[in-house]
Amino acid sequence: MGAGTSPADPAPAGRAADEPREPDERDGTTGTAGSAPPDPAMAATDTDTATSTAAKDTDTATDGAATGGRPRRSRRFPKFTRDTARPEGGGRAASGDAPAPARQWPLLTVLGAAGLGLLIVVLDPFDQAFRIGTILIGGALISGAVLRWVVPSVGMLAVRSRFTDLVTYGLMGTLIVLLALVAQPAPWLDVPILEDAVRFTIR
């Protein structure tokens, strides 16, 4: 070998010394010239992913342009109810400075009368206690209907709309009083139609 020259570096087995290396997508490094081509299925998946990402970016840009750069709110209803509207007349029956029982005096009046009637029915301290106690319970519901109609704000006595509460309290109270009056033996109210209906039902 002549002076001034050095032997060339030995080439790796399998490729020429001056052959360039091609990129390898499998490990991110440069591969050999004889490496296998990329998988067509993986290439198609990458293409679909890129297409869907571009479509989402386009939709986001369109929504942002339509709403002036603000994110579009969903039109769906919320999963949970955050609040409910107070029924008509459901405010305090007294001012906020009054004690808690005073603010709910309509409800306490109805509950007290109904509880007293129930106590009379259970204890049966005198004759006709069952009838009188039942009438007192029905009267408590009727008084609740009257309070719902007259008093502007009845507190927790207001459950639904004023019309619905009037019908519910009044109808239930009237039926209870009517049944107490026609109860056997020795009814206080004689209603032949009800007696015929009971006899027809029993027969």
Rank of each mutant, 00 (worst) to 15 (best):
A33G: 02
D9V: 07
P23H: 03
A3F: 09
D196P: 08
L136N: 13
G173I: 04
W188R: 01
V159C: 08
S6I: 10
I193P: 07
E88N: 10
P99G: 05
F77R: 09
P192D: 12
G115K: 02
E22W: 10
G28A: 12
T84S: 15
T58K: 15
P78W: 08
L175N: 00
L108Q: 02
A61Y: 05
D9E: 11
S143H: 09
P99R: 08
S95R: 13
D127T: 14
G2A: 08
P101R: 06
S153P: 15
P99V: 14
V121M: 04
G31R: 08
G155Q: 05
T168F: 02
E19F: 06
T81L: 11
P87I: 12
I142K: 02
R160G: 10
V159E: 04
L118Q: 13
R26K: 08
V122G: 01
R26D: 08
D46Q: 12
G34T: 10
A61D: 08
V151G: 09
L108V: 12
A13R: 12
G90I: 12
A93R: 07
M156S: 13
F80Q: 04
P125H: 11
L147V: 13
T30F: 09
Q184G: 02
T58W: 14
V151N: 02
Q128M: 07
S35D: 06
D39W: 14
S143I: 06
D127S: 11
G117N: 01
D48G: 12
T174D: 04
G90Q: 07
D83A: 12
T168E: 02
S6K: 15
A129Q: 07
P40L: 09
G133E: 03
A85C: 11
L166G: 00
G34F: 07
A43F: 00
A17S: 12
R86M: 02
G133A: 00
R103V: 03
A3Y: 11
A158E: 11
P78Q: 00
P87Q: 09
V159W: 13
R148E: 05
G14Y: 04
S74W: 05
G138Q: 03
F126M: 08
E22I: 12
I137S: 10
A50P: 03
G14D: 07
T164D: 14
W105K: 13
L118S: 13
T51N: 10
D165V: 15
